[in-house]
């Protein structure tokens, strides 16, 4: 696959993935731009892989996990926003935004694990390979993240009782 073809076909998906991962479109753009720039330089090697997109997506994850350390940046805005309680429990939008805020405040590795599992649909073993950690670590990261997110996988998917 040509690089141009890849960018046209997969940049939207990469942007979605990076935005879900970072909760920030500007940071997602930053990361996707960086990653595509580097992928372009090694495209002759990446394009012959069995799954180029999986490799590029992993570059996005790695870029995200190293991002703050590398740039010595701290706290994107969404991570310091106060988690303001809202009174209208039936307001789906407020509930969703609250969940996005909680997602944004997760430690990066926990967030990466949750996104790879519930957004990208990877197995524990695949996530472990992606993040370079053991399967047991993946499971504990995910369960701690779900506790913070207050997501209960056993809850009835059609019942919304309490949102925070």
């Amino acid at each position: 696959m040509e690089f141009g073809e890849y960018v046209v076909g997969r940049r939207p998906a990469l942007m979605r993935f990076a935005t879900v991962l970072t909760c920030q479109t500007w940071l997602a753009e930053d990361i996707v731009s960086d990653v595509l720039g580097r992928a372009y330089e090694r495209w002759d090697r990446i394009s012959v892989m069995a799954e180029p997109h999986a490799y590029v997506r992993r570059m996005v994850v790695n870029e995200y996990l190293s991002w703050r350390r590398r740039l010595a940046r701290t706290s994107p805005r969404a991570e310091v926003e106060p988690d303001v309680p809202f009174s209208d429990g039936a307001d789906e939008r407020a509930r969703r935004d609250a969940l996005i805020r909680r997602l944004a405040r997760l430690p990066r590795r926990q967030r990466a694990a949750v996104v790879l599992r519930y957004y990208a649909g990877l197995s524990d073993a695949e996530i472990g390979a992606e993040l370079g950690c053991r399967v047991t670590t993946v499971r504990s990261q995910i369960s701690r993240a779900l506790a913070t997110l207050r997501v209960d996988l056993t809850a009835n998917p059609h019942t919304y009782q309490e949102t925070r």
Binding site: P12, R16, V20, R95, R96, Y118, V151, E162
Partner: peptide, 23 residues
């Protein structure tokens, strides 16, 4: 507590923002 559907809603909202930024 909320459930997986709420998480998917959050993901969809983030996707929508991503698409807007991409476009």
């Amino acid at each position: 507590m909320t459930d997986l559907r709420a998480l998917n809603d959050a993901f969809e909202e983030l996707e929508r923002r991503a698409d807007a930024a991409t476009a």
